[in-house]
Write a protein that binds this DNA or RNA. Structure first.
Lengths: 141, 141
DNA sequence: CCACTTATCTTGAATCAGTCAAGATTTCAC
DNA sequence: GTGAAATCTTGACTGATTCAAGATAAGTGG
């Protein structure tokens, strides 16, 4: 993934290629599961003067078109990743909040068929596994 | 579920039986999936002078002991329910935010076995189905 | 290559759910 | 009934996210 790749991604979804968006894309790609503050910091190493608002806007826009995906586990602020469209899920550490990717056990679009969805038209199943990360379980308390 | 039942529930988990807690338990039981503000309002119909802080405290405490469960779908504030311990999940309407219960398709503790959990010790799998509720899909836009 | 339209960005203020803290009350065990 | 400790009230505060207005820059057509 290089600068031109990100530019192409933006063009492919008919979005204007702006420096803030490139910086955000690159930042999220380099720091999967980073929260907004970290994305802002990372983006600023590439483009020192980006406003936090531009980052928020970019993240929203990129999320809408599907170039980034946002996850908001309960008790955590929003986090972002560029791995999209492959229906993977996440393990979240209850203790330190760290996140790892998990391919679903049941194959593709798992659990997507709810037994009784009360007439809802379901288009996505989001799974969050809660537990303890290796680091936190080794260091008791 | 009557007042004495709620009192007993509190005693069973060694919590003091206070009027705010009873009001909150009853409110959540009567309004499944209600957000905090609604719980406060409902609790105040039973106990007019409860402080919002007491409701927050009660919700936290009751959640810790497992008498209520909290859900926080992305983009929504915290919501609460008294149906606990049966590993059910939720469908959330992207359009209006309404929530319905869903028993998991795969049986009990579904999907709980992630294929590769990166060394995490997983103790719970939370599933959120995203879609459109009957009302919103009938009324286009 | 230039001008124009409009999306996007900057700046700075505002919102709002949720939290913190100190002192007053209430619960429950004895 | 009494006392210790948990719980509640009051009121201020935090911090992630959003709103709004004007400035700037991307892409289009000439």
């Amino acid at each position: 993934m290089t600068q031109p790749d990100f530019q192409q991604q933006l063009r492919d979804v008919a979005l204007r290629v702006t420096r803030p968006r490139l910086a955000v894309l690159e930042a999220v790609h380099a720091h999967p599961h980073a929260d907004t503050e970290s994305v802002i910091a990372a983006a600023r190493t590439l483009l020192p003067e980006v406003s936090h608002q531009a980052v928020y806007d970019s993240l929203h826009t990129l999320t809408e078109v599907g170039l980034v995906r946002s996850i908001k586990p309960a008790g955590s602020v929003a986090r972002y990743e560029t791995r999209t469209g492959d229906n993977h899920h996440h393990v979240v550490c209850r203790s330190c909040g760290s996140i790892a990717d998990v391919d679903c056990a049941v194959g593709h679009t798992p659990c997507l068929t709810a037994s009784d969805s009360h007439g809802f038209v379901v288009d996505e199943a989001e799974v969050i596994y809660w537990g303890t990360c290796p680091e936190c379980s080794h260091r008791p308390q």
